[in-house]
Structures are given as structure tokens and as C-alpha cells.
Simulated scan of single mutants.
Amino acid sequence: MSLEAAFERVSMELEEPFTISRGTQTEAENLIVRVTDDEGTTGVGGAAPARHYGETADTVEAVLPELLSVVEEVGDPHALTTIESRMTEVVQDNPAARCAVSIALHDLAAKRLDVPLYRLWGLDASATPNTSFTVGIDTTERIREKAADAADAGYPILKVKLGGDRDREIVETVREAAPDATIRVDANEAWTPRETVEKSEWLAELGVEFIEQPVPAEDPEGLKFAYERSALPIAADESCVTATDIPRIADRCDIANLKLMKTGGLLEARRAIATARSHGLEVMLGCMIESNASIAAATHLAPLLDYADLDGSLLLAEDPFEGPAFEGGAISLDDVDRAGTGAVER
């Protein structure tokens, strides 16, 4: 067997500017990886690098030739452990780059066996949580409109970005616009530990489910302080990058929020999920702003999760790939009738 691998860089406009406590994004640069076997079957994966973790589209573009050389040298899409181990030896950083290759190989391997990816893993398609829909920081009126629109579209869970001097006003606005919605909030490291504890009190009164990454990842003691005193559960995101971080945060949060682009691949994501479980944590899988070239793969891990935040492709004005419909937030793997991840080029 032989494999040919290639990649391209794509720039995708967002439906509208997306703001969190660290800044505003108007477009997303992803890199698309394709791996083709000698029968002409192609697996597709996507990289969505995050500058916050020291990775950019330029760095991904720079290392992908080395990673794809590993793929071609091994020449077997089913040798996933071998290839991912060798990729880590070649490129220690740039997890999004390695992740794109991992997804493309998993997609190809499942297509060669003519099964959806979750069946390759032997997972129960009926045991999937709904994904949340994210409401970014904006004017009060626009937040009201976005929350109401998401609720009207059937999304039962809203993730609300916070981290400024309008936090209470924002959550009250979302609650008024979507009174029946489950609300989760994400401060993206913008609060102090004491501020987290204080805000958790009124957030609980407004029916918020949990708080995601309230304090800086560089302050593990602050995370522990918030966790031990908060009126709400705490999810760790920026504090939890790979499986090796989980033992260090296990006594400082209730939920580990993993992302494929942080872990560096699907095999490592599954290890991280198992590690979190072994430390008594609940598990959420999140995402960057990504094409369905990678989001579709993430959905196949849904049976292993307690919470899902996989709406990254929904924030794009136009995605070059079709993927999960997410009608009403549902991750409906048992409706998947395509082999592989289910991502299809438009």
C-alpha cells in the first residue's frame, strides 16, 4: 500500500465578528490535509491553530511537510499509533498540525472499512450530549437577538462569553431572551479567584450550569481557590491542554474541557478522556472556530462525553465542507450514513 498526502490553506470569513475577553475574530484560517490511498480513497482532516497556544497558520504550514513525510513513509492509514508516535517525535509542538493529519488518517481508515468513525471505535451512537451554541460578547441588543435566535432555532444550551464589566448584564439579557435555555459561561481567564467566587453566587441565582476557565491558567492555586469556594461547578480549559495536565488540575475543577486542536490528535484525545475519567472528572469536548473538516471528527467522540461545545463551524459565513447538521443542538451519530468522519467537500 502507498499513501499520498497534501494540504492547502483556507481563509474563512465569520458570519459576524466573534468577541471573547481576549479580543475579536473576523475570520478563521484553517489548513486542510488530504491523504489518499492507492485505490483513490481520500481522508480529510483540518487544523485550526490558536495563537494563544503558540500556533499559527504559518507554523502549521511550515511543519506539515515533515508530518506528511511520516505518513508517506509508513504508508498504512491503519497504523495510527505508529504514525502518531512518529509525528510527535518529529514535531513536538504544533498540536493542530498533528491533529489535522490524525483526523485525515482516521477518516481514511474508516472509509477503507466502510464504517462511520464511531463504529470503528465501537461506541454507542445513542449516548451523545447536545452541543452548546456560543454567544460572544457584543452590544446588549445584539446579544439579546443572538440568544433569542439560537433558542428559536432549537438550541437548548447556550454558552455565553464573559470577562468584562458587563458580565451580569450580559447573563441577565441572555436569560430574558432565552428563559428555558441551559446557560454555561466562559470567562476565558479574565477573572480573579475572588471575583469568580463572588460572581458564582449571582450566576447560580440566574440558573447558570457551570463556569468555564474563570482564572488564568498560570494561576493553578487561584483555580483551586475558586473551585473550592464557587457556588457553581468549574470547568478547566486553558489549564488543561493535554492528558499530562489532568493530574495537576484534578483537584481544582469539576470538568476537563478538551479540544482536538490542543491534544494533537484523535488517539491522544481518547487518552485524555480516559485520563480525566480515571481522575473522577466529567469531560467536555470543545473546539476552535473550525471547518467541518475537523468538527465532524470531533462529533464521533460524543458518546464518551458529558458535555459538548462543538459549534465552531456554525460561526462561519461559509464552510467548504458539509458536516453534522446539529439540528436543535443534537449530535445524531446514529443518523450518519457516510463512512469516515462524514465531512464532505461542497
Rank of each mutant, 00 (worst) to 15 (best):
residue 203 L to P: 02
residue 298 A to G: 04
residue 82 T to Q: 12
residue 241 V to G: 09
residue 6 A to P: 02
residue 152 D to P: 01
residue 339 A to C: 04
residue 16 E to Q: 13
residue 108 L to D: 04
residue 250 A to Q: 01
residue 15 E to H: 08
residue 203 L to M: 10
residue 50 A to V: 06
residue 174 V to R: 01
residue 178 A to H: 01
residue 69 S to P: 01
residue 225 F to Y: 15
residue 123 L to W: 14
residue 144 R to Q: 11
residue 308 A to S: 03
residue 338 R to D: 09
residue 68 L to T: 09
residue 228 E to M: 07
residue 230 S to W: 13
residue 298 A to S: 09
residue 193 P to Q: 12
residue 211 I to A: 10
residue 242 T to S: 14
residue 320 P to K: 01
residue 20 I to E: 11
residue 244 T to S: 14
residue 196 T to M: 15
residue 93 D to H: 01
residue 221 E to C: 07
residue 289 I to G: 14
residue 106 H to I: 05
residue 327 E to C: 05
residue 346 R to T: 07
residue 13 E to P: 09
residue 322 E to H: 09
residue 281 L to W: 13
residue 15 E to G: 11
residue 261 M to D: 02
residue 346 R to W: 11
residue 127 A to S: 10
residue 15 E to R: 11
residue 71 V to T: 10
residue 246 I to W: 05
residue 61 E to R: 08
residue 168 R to K: 07
residue 168 R to L: 11
residue 112 R to D: 15
residue 277 R to T: 07
residue 233 P to I: 04
residue 23 G to F: 02
residue 132 S to D: 13
residue 308 A to Y: 10
residue 169 E to L: 00
residue 155 Y to F: 15
residue 148 A to E: 03
residue 98 R to Y: 00
residue 222 G to Q: 07
residue 141 E to S: 08
residue 66 E to Y: 12
residue 268 E to D: 10
residue 253 C to S: 04
residue 305 L to T: 00
residue 190 A to G: 12
residue 110 A to T: 01
residue 135 V to S: 03
residue 191 W to N: 11
residue 47 A to Y: 12
residue 245 D to R: 02
residue 208 V to P: 03
residue 148 A to F: 09
residue 190 A to H: 09
residue 50 A to C: 07
residue 38 D to P: 07
residue 255 I to N: 05
residue 124 D to R: 01
residue 161 K to N: 05
residue 146 K to S: 14
residue 17 P to N: 10
residue 328 G to P: 03
residue 96 A to N: 04
residue 170 I to D: 09
residue 146 K to C: 13
residue 346 R to V: 06
residue 45 G to W: 13
residue 264 G to F: 00
residue 338 R to C: 07
residue 256 A to N: 00
residue 318 E to S: 12
residue 27 E to L: 06
residue 107 D to W: 02
residue 10 V to D: 08
residue 277 R to E: 11
residue 292 N to V: 05
residue 189 E to G: 03
residue 126 S to F: 09
residue 144 R to A: 15
residue 189 E to I: 01
residue 173 T to E: 01
residue 133 F to R: 11
residue 147 A to Q: 01
residue 73 E to A: 15
residue 167 D to W: 13
residue 61 E to N: 12
residue 113 L to A: 15
residue 123 L to Q: 07
residue 307 Y to C: 04
residue 266 L to I: 06
residue 1 M to K: 04
residue 55 E to L: 00
residue 234 I to H: 01
residue 234 I to V: 02
residue 331 I to Q: 08
residue 3 L to Q: 09
residue 191 W to C: 12
residue 241 V to I: 10
residue 230 S to L: 10
residue 10 V to W: 12
residue 217 A to D: 04
residue 5 A to D: 12
residue 27 E to V: 03
residue 56 T to I: 03
residue 2 S to R: 12
residue 325 A to N: 05
residue 199 K to P: 08
residue 33 V to M: 15
residue 231 A to S: 15
residue 162 L to V: 04
residue 172 E to R: 04
residue 279 H to R: 05
residue 104 A to I: 06
residue 110 A to F: 02
residue 44 V to A: 14
residue 153 A to L: 08
residue 324 P to T: 03
residue 333 L to S: 13
residue 265 G to V: 03
residue 6 A to V: 08
residue 102 S to C: 08
residue 300 H to P: 02
residue 140 T to S: 05
residue 189 E to V: 04
residue 138 D to Y: 14
residue 299 T to N: 10
residue 141 E to Y: 05
residue 112 R to S: 15
residue 320 P to Y: 05
residue 60 V to Y: 00
residue 264 G to V: 00
